[in-house]
Amino acid sequence: MMDRVKIEQELVEFFSTKETLDPTSLISEDTNLIEAGLDSMIMIELLLFIEEKYGFWIPEAYLTEEIFKNIKALSTSIIELSNNKNI
């Protein structure tokens, strides 16, 4: 069973190292990642991070504004997709 709190902490840590994201605000579970400046390169790094950490590649069809609304939404999607790895 995936630990949501742990996933969110790991994602906060991941995004906190991305220097092209808005440096004026601390990254938290509620940060809107799109508004913070999520670009293609960070998205690719995130997909690689998720693949390495949680064992699957998020299908491109799932990469919508909804999933990046904040880290809570992203962690929910990771848990749902991980439970359904026939994607």
Binding site: E60, L63, T64, E65
Partner: peptide, 8 residues
């Protein structure tokens, strides 16, 4: 584009 997500 504001971001590179397909919808946007």
């Amino acid at each position: 584009c504001k971001n590179h997500l397909a919808g946007q």
